[in-house]
C-alpha cells in the first residue's frame, strides 16, 4: 500500500518527462478521483500552500515563482497579460501630406505599433461613433520635412551629412494635449517609450504631415495594444539521481544538462555526480540518448511551481502589469456574478 501511495503522489504532483513522451500532464486533483485524498476546494489550505517569490525585477522585466496554484489559473494570468490588459496605442492616423516612398497604409501600420508611454488607467475606452475627447484620446503630431544640408562638403556622399531630417524617428512625434491634458499629465509627459524607432527615410523635398489619435484597447483586438513583449511561465524542473553516478559516467551526465545543474563531488578519490540546481535546466532530455545513463535519472517537473517571466514593452512596469492582470480576472468574475444576481431578480 505504501508503494502505491507514493505512486499516487507522483501522479498528482509531478509531470514526468519520459523517453517516449510526457506523462501525467493533466491536473487530476478533483474530488472522487483518489481515495483518501480530500480534493474539495479549501481556501485555508490554498492560502497555506500558496507563495510567491520575486526573483528579478527591473523597469522592463520581471521573474517570479508562483507556487501552489493550478495551471488553469496561472495560465489565465498569462493569457490576460498577453491579450487583456489595456494600453494606449495609435488607432487613427490622419495623413495630410506624405510624399515619402512609404505608402500611407504601411506608414499608418508602422505608427500603430509604436509603444506610447501613457498610463491607460487614466483613460476611458473610446466610443466607436463619438468624436475623441480628453478622457479617451491622445493626440500626437508628426510634421517633418527633409532638405539638403547647406553646410555639407562637396565631395561627401554620406546621406547623414548631405541631408537634414532624412531619418524620421519616433522622437520626432510630438504630443498635442487636448482640453485639460496638459495640466493632468504635467509630470508625466506623453511620448513614445523609445526615442530611436525608425519610422521612415526621406530625401530632399519629401515631407510628412500627420496627426494621430491614440485610444485605449486590448491585445485581443490588435497586437499593438498588448502591454508585454512576452509573458510566459515554465514549470520547475526536477532531476533525481536514482543511484550513485561516478567517474567517467558522472562527467558525461554533467554534460547532458545545462551548465550549473550537475556538480561533481570528490568522494574517496572518485568523482560523483550531484544535482545542485535543477532550476537551470532547459529540459533538453539529452540524457535519454545515452543508453547507460538514461535509467539512472528521473526527469520531471513540479506541477504547481510556475516560473513566470514578464517582459514589458515599457508602457507600464512589469509588476504593475501583473497586478492589473489579476484585477482583470477578478472583474470577469464580478461581471458574471452581477449578471447572475440580475437574472435571479427577474
Amino acid at each position: 500500500m505504501a508503494a502505491s501511495r507514493k505512486n499516487v503522489d507522483e501522479i498528482r504532483n509531478r509531470v514526468i518527462l519520459g523517453e517516449f513522451g510526457v506523462r501525467n500532464v493533466h491536473s487530476t486533483d478533483f474530488p472522487g478521483n483518489y481515495p483518501g485524498h480530500d480534493d474539495t476546494w479549501n481556501m485555508w489550505k490554498f492560502q497555506k500552500n500558496f507563495r510567491i517569490d520575486m526573483m528579478h525585477l527591473d523597469e522592463s522585466t520581471m521573474e517570479f515563482d508562483m507556487v501552489g496554484i493550478d495551471a488553469a489559473i496561472a495560465n489565465a494570468f498569462r493569457r490576460i497579460l498577453l491579450a487583456e490588459v489595456p494600453t494606449m496605442a495609435i488607432e487613427k492616423v490622419f495623413i495630410y501630406n506624405n510624399t515619402s516612398i512609404v505608402q500611407d497604409e504601411v506608414l499608418a501600420h508602422r505608427l500603430g505599433l509604436i509603444p506610447i508611454k501613457a498610463d491607460p488607467r487614466l483613460f476611458e475606452y473610446r466610443n466607436t461613433e463619438a468624436e475623441g475627447s480628453e478622457i479617451d484620446t491622445i493626440q500626437l503630431q508628426l510634421k517633418i520635412k527633409c532638405s539638403r544640408n547647406p553646410k555639407a562638403s562637396k565631395e561627401s556622399s554620406d546621406p547623414r551629412e548631405l541631408y537634414l531630417n532624412h531619418m524620421v524617428y519616433s522622437r520626432d512625434i510630438t504630443w498635442v494635449p487636448i482640453g485639460n491634458q496638459a495640466d493632468v499629465f504635467a509630470d508625466s509627459v506623453i511620448r513614445p517609450v523609445h526615442d530611436d524607432i525608425l519610422i521612415a527615410q526621406l530625401r530632399p523635398g519629401h515631407e510628412l504631415d500627420i496627426v494621430m489619435h491614440c485610444v485605449k484597447g486590448i491585445g485581443k483586438d490588435h497586437a499593438k495594444f498588448s502591454p508585454v513583449a512576452t509573458a510566459s511561465y515554465r514549470l520547475l524542473p526536477e532531476i533525481t539521481l536514482l543511484e550513485p553516478v561516478e567517474g567517467e559516467k558522472a562527467e558525461r551526465l554533467k554534460r547532458c544538462f545545462s551548465p550549473g545543474v550537475i556538480a561533481l563531488q570528490d568522494v574517496n578519490g572518485t568523482k560523483a555526480a550531484k544535482v545542485v540546481n535543477s532550476r537551470m535546466d532547459t529540459c533538453s532530455r539529452e540524457v535519454i540518448r545515452h543508453d547507460d545513463l538514461k535509467n539512472l535519472v528521473k526527469l520531471g517537473r513540479v506541477r504547481d511551481h510556475f516560473i513566470f517571466t514578464v517582459e514589458s514593452t515599457g508602457i507600464l512596469a512589469p509588476d504593475v502589469l501583473f497586478t492589473e492582470a489579476v484585477k482583470v480576472l477578478m472583474s470577469k468574475c464580478q461581471r458574471f456574478l452581477s449578471e447572475l444576481d440580475a437574472t435571479e431578480m427577474e
Binding site: F46, F50, I69, F77, T323, L329, M330
Partner: peptide, 10 residues
Amino acid sequence: ELTDVCQHVL
C-alpha cells in the same frame, strides 16, 4: 472562490 483566489494572489 475564483475572486477570492485572485485577491489572495494579488
